[in-house]
């Protein structure tokens, strides 16, 4: 049984998870998910969609009303956090204010009775990995936000768990530091081969870091897939809207089609499309200069249909708001949305 559990089993298996908080408001309405060992897996969704609750159920900080949680094939649904081989990086970092950085990182080892010498050495190594070995005697209050975040990472990594849960760990950082840490996290995940389960509401972050993503909405998973799958073949309007920007047009047979703005180009009024092209004649509603590209919104007055185009800024210089134009796209890039 034990052997069976560790060979080829899923890192995380969730089936039929439901959870309501007080007053019966359902937070999770049945979550099924399998996360492979060594994967960088992201749970993406707006706030209140259930992604953090799902993470807390995996960590054991909360118990589900129904359903099952397995870690490497072992049923842990009713086990408390301290009996799960999982480490978590908390949104507020949750560093112990009364301990030095070294003691923070060594905490788990101390609890498990690892000797003082080994403890100190491994904690020092872990701090070295996040470039904080020089200040390991300091207290968390003496650090910047970015430094605290790295201590939290070292603390999650030092015990070499099979699985690390990360709850919006970059949420409090400024943009530049965020980008750096994204690269850093991805590098460490590849290097260590530890399964990362990452929660974020930032779709760009999810796309750039993840092997696979689960998109959450109102307590259910809308779609699970690779970043490419989610972007190019979204399973629902919600996923299409949430990931990347998009225009959705009601198609001829009541079936909606999805257009990504980078697939749309602008032509002058009176443009005749080739047989491979579709068009939407209209007026420029809005122009936003974004540096390398310019975003234009074209609206067809008669129907109210709207298409957003992202065009290279050099070619957008002649565009003006209120101008009559034609939005053009190749027929094969228009993706018919399911449902």
């Amino acid at each position: 049984m034990q052997d069976n559990a560790t060979t080829g089993a899923m890192a995380v298996g969730l089936s039929g998870l439901t959870k309501s908080y007080d007053r019966g408001r359902p937070v999770l309405k049945g979550i099924d998910l399998e996360i492979c060992p060594g994967e960088f897996f992201t749970m993406l969704g707006p706030s209140g969609s259930g992604k953090t609750t799902t993470l807390r159920l995996i960590g054991g900080f909360e118990l589900p009303d129904a359903g099952q949680v397995t870690l490497l094939g072992r049923d842990v649904t009713r086990l408390p956090p301290y009996q799960r081989d999982v480490n978590t990086m908390f949104q507020d970092y949750a560093l112990f204010p009364h301990m030095s950085l070294r003691d923070n990182v060594a905490y788990g080892m101390k609890i498990r009775g690892v000797g003082a010498a080994e403890r100190t050495e491994r904690a020092q190594q872990a701090l070295d990995m996040v470039h904080l070995d020089a200040v390991s005697d300091r207290r968390p209050s003496q650090l910047s936000g970015g430094q605290r975040q790295r201590v939290a990472l070292a603390r999650a990594l030092v015990n070499k768990p099979k699985l690390i849960l990360l709850d919006e760990p970059l949420g409090a950082l400024d943009l530049k530091l965020r980008r750096e840490m994204q690269v850093e996290l991805k590098r460490i995940q590849k290097q260590t081969g530890i399964t990362f389960v990452y929660v974020t509401h930032d779709q760009e972050e999810a796309l750039s870091m993840s092997d696979r993503i689960a998109v959450f909405s109102e307590g259910v998973i809308e779609q699970v897939g690779t970043p490419q799958e989610l972007y190019e073949r979204p399973a629902s309007r919600f996923v299409a809207r949430f990931i990347g920007s998009s225009s959705i047009l009601g198609g001829e047979h009541g079936c909606a089609i999805l257009l990504r703005p980078e697939d749309v180009r602008m032509e002058p009024h009176g443009y005749t499309p080739t047989p491979d092209e579709d068009i939407l004649p209209g007026v420029v509603e809005e122009i936003a200069y974004l540096g390398p590209v310019t975003r234009c919104q074209v609206q067809r007055m008669e129907t109210g249909a709207c298409v957003t185009a992202m065009v290279p800024s050099r070619t957008a210089r002649t565009l003006q708001e209120g101008m009559a134009v034609v939005a053009v796209w190749a027929k094969d890039v228009a993706y018919p949305l399911p449902r």
Binding site: G59, G60, F61, P80, P81, Y82, V86, N87, T88, F90, Q91, D92, A94, L95, F96, Y107, G108, K110, I111, R112, R155, N159
Partner: peptide, 19 residues
Amino acid sequence: SLLDAAGDMGATPWQTFRT
């Protein structure tokens, strides 16, 4: 979250209280 973190790193409720 500090209590969650202690449990996360293997501390029983009593160890969390003490440390």
